[in-house]
Every structure is written in structure tokens, then in C-alpha cells.
């Protein structure tokens, strides 16, 4: 994968598959580092699953025998002097179950790959899971780009799914305008 935004998409897909109804994606960056956090209220992982998470030959899926999402992300973060941490509470342990994945990347490292089109990633996530309440925040030193699916749904009502092309187009423009206003156009990532 040649864009960090594709890793964001891939890792957040795990939250969707874990049955989460609330998923918060946060990107935070300064001149030196980029932090990426995704937090969900999905089914969570057992301690055993958590231990095997960085093993590429571990996956819960049945269609293939490898699971490369977290190993890829870890490799990329560590190559830039950063790290990945995953904390999780399984639904059998607590009603407050869910998973939090945090990653830190060194932006000035030669192995850092560009963020890429993060807006397309957000749109893709909403298209695939329109019932999930995604919260997206991208925090810069001079301001924050934000999107709340709950707020959109409040206006649209329940009868119009967020996956409707017109709604997705609005979401894309809404985010891109915020990036432009802060002086961080998506095309420059």
C-alpha cells in the first residue's frame, strides 16, 4: 500500500467487522509526527487473540490463512521510528468492550509514505457501513477537520442511508472544504 490513508481504511475495516456501532478515527499531526487512532465499541479481542495480533499467520477469517493488516501497519510505523499499540476488551469480559489501535509515524523519515486521499477513505468507510456512527477528526496545529455521522443522520433522518451517492458526494466536499480552509488541501498529502 502506497498511501497511509489505505492503512487507515484497512485497520478501520477491522472495527466494522467487529460489529462496532461507534468508531472514532483521529489523526493528529505536527511538523514531526503523525498519530493515528481508531477506537471502537466492537466485540473486542480475547487476550489470546491480542497476543497473536502481530503474527502475520494469524487471522480469524476463514477465506485465507494470513492476516496482514496489523503486521503491515506495525512495520510501516516502526520503519519511521514510530510504533503501534493495540488495547482491547473482549465482550465476554466487560460490557464496555472494544478495541483501540494507536499508531505513530515519523513524518520526516525517508520511509514515511504520504497520507494520500484520506477523504476517499472516509467516504469508502461510510459507503460500506452506513449504519455505523463514524467520528472523524484530523487535528492540525492550526485547526481541526471534523465529521460526525451522527450529526449528518440527525439532519437526514433514518430513511436516507449515508451510503447514498449524493450524501457521499456532500461528505467528500464538506471534508475537502475544511482541509482547504485550514491550508492543508488533500491533494498535497
Amino acid at each position: 500500500m502506497d498511501e497511509l490513508s489505505l492503512y487507515v481504511l484497512d485497520i478501520t475495516m477491522n472495527s466494522v467487522r467487529a460489529g462496532a456501532t461507534e468508531i472514532a478515527i483521529t489523526l493528529r499531526e505536527d511538523g514531526e509526527w503523525l498519530w493515528f487512532t481508531v477506537e471502537d465499541n466492537g466485540c473486542g479481542m480475547t487476550e489470546e487473540q491480542l497476543k497473536k495480533l502481530t503474527d502475520p499467520f494469524f487471522t480469524t477469517r476463514k477465506t485465507r490463512k494470513v492476516g496482514l493488516g496489523i503486521p503491515f501497519l506495525t512495520m510501516l510505523a516502526e520503519m519511521t521510528g514510530g510504533f503501534v499499540t493495540v488495547t482491547s476488551t473482549h465482550e465476554s469480559v466487560s460490557p464496555n468492550h472494544g478495541t483501540k489501535t494507536e499508531a505513530k509515524f515519523g513524518k520526516n523519515h525517508i520511509d514515511f509514505i504520504p497520507l494520500g486521499d484520506i477523504v476517499e477513505t472516509v467516504k469508502t468507510l461510510i459507503q460500506g457501513a452506513p449504519a455505523v456512527n463514524f467520528t472523524f477528526r484530523h487535528i492540525f496545529p492550526n485547526g481541526t477537520v471534523e465529521l460526525s455521522c451522527a450529526a449528518i443522520r440527525e439532519t437526514l433522518g433514518d430513511e436516507i442511508p449515508l451510503s447514498e451517492p449524493d450524501v457521499l458526494m456532500w461528505i467528500g466536499q464538506y471534508l475537502r472544504e475544511q482541509y482547504d480552509e485550514l491550508g492543508h488541501p488533500v491533494a498535497q498529502f
Partner: peptide, 18 residues
């Protein structure tokens, strides 16, 4: 600048279609 109010127009436009 896009606003949440614009979604109301999308909602009205789409209500019949959906």
C-alpha cells in the same frame, strides 16, 4: 462552505427516490 443545512435539500430530493 458546505453546511449541514444543505443536507436537508438532499433529503427532500431523495425522499421519493428512496
Amino acid at each position: 462552505m458546505k453546511s449541514l443545512a444543505e443536507l436537508q435539500a438532499i433529503k427532500n430530493k431523495m425522499a421519493d427516490r428512496v
